[in-house]
Amino acid sequence: MLSYALRRLAMIVPVLLGISVIVFLIMAMIPGDPALAILGSFATPENTAQLRQDLGLDRPLIEQYVVWLGNLLQGDFGRSYSLNRPVLDEVIERLGPTLLLAGASLILCTILGLAAGVVSAVRQYGWQDKALTLAVLVGLSTPSFWLGLILVLIFSVGLRWFPVSGMYAIYGGGGLTDLLHHLVLPAVTLAVVATGVIARLTRSTMLEVLRQDFVRTARAKGLTERTVILRHALRNALVNIVPIIGIQTGFVLGGAVYIETVFQWPGIGRMLVTAISTRDILLVQGGVLVVAACYVLINLAADLIQHMLDPRIGT
């Protein structure tokens, strides 16, 4: 298992390298020039050329990439020209908030999704099942950015229970309570769709498992229904559910891009949106690489957990 983990870890290198080439190419292909983005309406061909030279954009694309890669190997992610600071400083500063938001909503969607799925399966066709199925369907079909706005209108502007945006109170903020207070709405918004996905999958998997012989055996042994469902059925169902939770990580990290915009969460998603619109290629590269690395690592963790749940699954 250790060697499997190491092999998978080593795979990250080519994956990230491939991603960096793709990002570089896409950024080169989309029209628009960083020098123009900086100069705005003052961009005479002359000024633009001068600024392009100052920024090293006049060199061939391959050369730009090789220089970037060489620096990267020495731990230098380059300097963001839209923010005028080292890319790494910015990315590290922004990664924490995103992981926190993504982590919180991943925990939320796992707990709520599993609970809803198990209840639905156990009470198949009962009123709980019907109510939950309806709720899940509504959750799945609600666009998150819209839901975020509605939650803000109700709970922030109307009831004033939660802050509208940001991660800490703008004045005298800080501390865990303040953070949790700001985290609730964005985490819930981000979790809704993923909760639906997990709930539906849990329900169908559980229904399948509950019909199997070992469940009947467990019941026949006189185990409590609780033990049968949680220890035996759910545990077996989890083997199929865990990888889906791993994939939801990608969804949650991707969703962070617009949730962070709606809630002005100072995370990496919002950073990427701005970086793309200003054609800040180095910042985009840095951000995408770090997010991709997180995604790969979390999926590796999901695979390892799946292997622990069912050692028969090949490693």
């Binding site: 229970w161 109170a169 309570t177 229904e225 609780r226």
Partner: peptide
């Protein structure tokens, strides 16, 4: 049925989460 306790526990956890909400007002500007 034992399952019912688990259901109650889950509801309890949700309620606790909700209780966090009308939390102390942040320092006024």
């Amino acid at each position: 049925m034992a399952w019912k306790n688990g259901w109650k526990a889950a509801c309890g956890a949700l309620l606790m989460l909700a209780a966090l909400s009308p939390s102390p007002a942040p320092a006024q500007v």
